[in-house]
Design a protein around this nucleic acid. Structure first.
Length: 157
DNA sequence: GTTGAGCGTT
């Protein structure tokens, strides 16, 4: 019943209830401290991440807020969506992409493919990390390049 | 303190 509303953003899947919400349309001057003040009203936060442009250092106008409880995330999405913050009408949705709290734990392996070849991944060189959006490879094994193409076709689900 | 739709690292 809520499917056709997001056609203008492409074939992106509809966000499902999640601990992490994305906040878009922010003022470039809204800080994480400010976001914390607002969103901690809905429940305890596990973290906040304003996305900055790597070159200019300025905010890109969106952020991600992690709640400890999904129920609080739901309430935040419903109540904070459309709210005005620093003169801008913000949009709040469940996050689609997910990032781990820790930085990239290994070598970036590209986006997961739909194909699965699980029989290849039982050796000690394929210790792999996946956050559901990207796939990383953990070790610095010299055999890395031999396994690269296989690893790229790995997908968790 | 330019622009404004956006799903991600400083």
């Amino acid at each position: 019943p809520i499917s056709s509303r997001r056609r203008h953003v492409g074939n992106r899947t509809n966000p499902n209830p999640n601990n992490c919400i994305g906040v878009f349309g922010l003022s470039l001057y809204t800080t994480d401290r400010e976001l914390r003040e607002v969103f901690s009203r809905y429940g305890p936060l596990a973290g906040i991440n304003v996305v900055y442009d790597q070159r200019t250092g300025r905010s890109r106008g969106f952020a991600f807020v992690y709640f400890e409880n999904v129920e609080d995330s739901k309430e935040a999405k419903e109540r904070a969506n459309g709210m005005e913050l620093d003169g801008r009408r913000i949009r709040v949705d469940y996050s689609i992409t997910k990032r781990p709290h820790t930085p990239t734990p290994g070598i970036y392996m590209g986006r997961p493919t739909t194909r699965v070849h699980s029989s290849h991944y039982h050796d000690s060189h394929s210790d792999r990390y996946d956050d559901g959006d990207f796939t990383y490879r953990r070790s610095t094994s010299p055999c890395y390049s031999r396994y690269r193409s296989r690893s790229r076709s790995y997908t968790p689900r």
